[in-house]
Structure formats: structure tokens, C-alpha cells
Computed example of a mutant assay.
Amino acid sequence: MDHNASADEGIRLQKVLANAGVASRRASEELIVQGRVRVNGRVVTELGSRIDPERDLVDVDGTAVQLDASKRYVMLNKPTGVVSSMKDDRGRKDLRAFTRDWPERLFNVGRLDADTSGLLVLTNDGELAQVLAHPSFGVTKVYIAKVKGTVTPQTIAKLTRGIELEDGPIHADKARLLDTSGGSSLVELTLHSGRNRIVRRMMAEVGHPVVELVRRQFGPLHLGTLPVGRARELTKVELGALLTLSRQGSDAPPAGVERDSDADQEGTP
């Protein structure tokens, strides 16, 4: 439905915003009058405007708003030894143990390797999951890898410049050496590739096999202080950022971005 629908159709925009928890009805009216609210990409300043919350897309100050209260978005700090599946047919430990606090049927957005820990998104929003997992939509991920040996600045430069793997060239968007001690190093890698076990293969190629691997960031989401094995719902700010990212992706997946078929797969267990 277009936001110019007749007055007896849809729900008033300020009521929709208030129901979504954006602000009180009065404050939502102010946002509308100030031209800070868009419906389907067009600024709406008329307080009488009505929309269809099930079909129309709303954003405030350029940040997407979720109007469907039945949608759930959860951040998990996945432990090692857990496969990224809601039901593993081989009897291994899966993600079901971490979703019991939510009545909705959640599923994972992309995958993390069984021996990789860190940030995994669980949701019942199939549309968002599909966009973030689109082959041409490379979500930026940040990993911290503990690797064997002492990594040199030259090796860091090589990772960002690019290396050749058996399935083609690859480079990190960013690479930082965080620490070297006791015969091992900590390296932070930022990349948007979703190739199978890509971080492990990159570090092995430059002579520093991975000992431990954790994903700290996924797109706009940061693991922060969330303990391993714990899950929490996204904050409104985090959800807005993630929805904004996914809506940009559904409009026009960036051209020339490396294939990323599992959105954030560090590797199949």
C-alpha cells in the first residue's frame, strides 16, 4: 500500500511508530513533522498519513524500523564444539540448546565452523536471513585468530595485499597484529568473503596455522562482553542497523562482491 492511501485505509503512521517502540505517539508526530520519517523511501510529513505495517517499509533518520513485533533477532556467542544447525542428523551438539528461551522457531543466519566460536545471529525473519546470505551480498566480518609462530608486519601486509588459494585470490579488507608471545600471535582479520574455512586457509597459506578462532563482529553487530554460550536479543540500535543493512541489500546487492553463499560461513564442520 502506498502512503497516499485513502484516510480509511491502514493505520496512522504515528501510531505505527509508537507501537514499534520508536517513540511515544506525541514524539513520533514530531519526527514526522520534522521530515525524519520515510515510508517506502519517500519522506512523509503529513500527520494524517496511514500505512500498511505488513507491507510498507518505514525508516527514521535513515535507520530501518521493524513494524512486525513477532520477528525475533538474537545474538549468540557460539562455543566451539557446536555445529551451526538447528538439528544435526549426526547427533553432534547443535544450536537448539541456545534457543530455548524464545518461543519462536529461530534459525541461524549463515554458519560458523564447529571449532570456531563467536558471533552468530539467530532469527525467525526469513527475508533478512536470505538477504544477508545472498551470494552477491558480502557482510563484513571481523575475526581474531590465535596462530602458531611470530607473525611479522610483512605477513600482515601480504594478507591485505592478497594471496593465491586453490579456489582463487583472496585478500583481507584489514589485518592487524594484536600480540606476539610464547611462540604464537594474535591477528585480527576483517573480510567479507564467505568461502569455506577462509580464515584458516589464509593463515595456513602464510605459514601460521590457526590454533583458535573467534568471530567478534558481523556487519554492524559487535560481540562485546557477551560470554561464550550466552545469547541475548539485539538492542533497538543493533536491530535498526542490521535491518538497514539488509534492506540496502534487498534493493541492490553490491556488484562485484565476492560470492558469500552462507553469508558468514567460516567453514562447514
Rank of each mutant, 00 (worst) to 15 (best):
L226R: 01
G81S: 14
L213V: 05
P79A: 14
K158A: 12
E9R: 15
P79Y: 10
P269S: 14
V16P: 07
Y143Q: 00
H222V: 04
E238S: 11
L128F: 12
E266S: 15
F107V: 04
G183Q: 12
G224T: 04
R55G: 02
G149K: 08
I198N: 00
G126P: 03
A241N: 14
S250W: 10
H192W: 12
F137G: 04
G62E: 11
S250F: 08
D101Y: 07
L120T: 08
R90P: 04
L17V: 06
I163D: 05
G168H: 05
L119F: 07
L57I: 08
L189N: 01
T150L: 07
S250P: 07
E9K: 14
G219H: 09
R161T: 14
R25S: 09
D251K: 15
V257C: 13
L189Q: 03
D56Y: 03
F137A: 06
R12L: 14
A255Q: 13
A172P: 03
R26T: 08
G138A: 14
D125W: 00
P269I: 11
P169H: 06
R72Q: 11
P169L: 04
D113P: 02
G256N: 12
G138D: 09
G240Q: 11
S28Y: 04
V58L: 03
G149S: 09
E212F: 13
G229E: 08
G138I: 06
D88T: 08
L226V: 01
P209E: 10
E104V: 01
L95Y: 06
A252Q: 10
T225Q: 15
Q14E: 07
R38T: 13
V65D: 00
V151W: 03
K146V: 13
R111Y: 09
G21A: 07
R42G: 12
V33F: 11
L245V: 02
S261V: 06
K71D: 00
L189F: 01
G182K: 14
T225S: 15
E205G: 01
R200C: 02
N124E: 00
L186T: 03
L177G: 09
A133D: 09
R197T: 03
Q34E: 15
T150Y: 09
L67S: 02
P227E: 01
R100M: 03
V199W: 00
R38E: 14
V58A: 00
L119K: 02
G126A: 03
V44M: 06
R100H: 01
D167F: 10
H171T: 07
Q66H: 07
K15V: 11
V58M: 03
T190W: 09
V187P: 01
A241L: 14
V82M: 11
R72V: 12
T155N: 10
N40I: 02
P254A: 12
G126H: 10
R36L: 10
V206D: 10
T152V: 05
V39S: 10
R259M: 12
R197V: 03
G138W: 04
R247P: 07
R176V: 13
G118F: 08
S184V: 12
D2R: 12
S185F: 04
P253E: 14
T225F: 15
P209T: 09
R215T: 03
E127A: 12
Y143T: 00
R105Q: 15
L234H: 04
L17K: 01
E188F: 04
H208K: 06
V151M: 08
R100T: 03
V131L: 15
A18C: 08
L17T: 02
G81D: 14
D264Y: 12
S193K: 07
G91Q: 02
V16H: 02
G256Y: 11
V237Y: 05
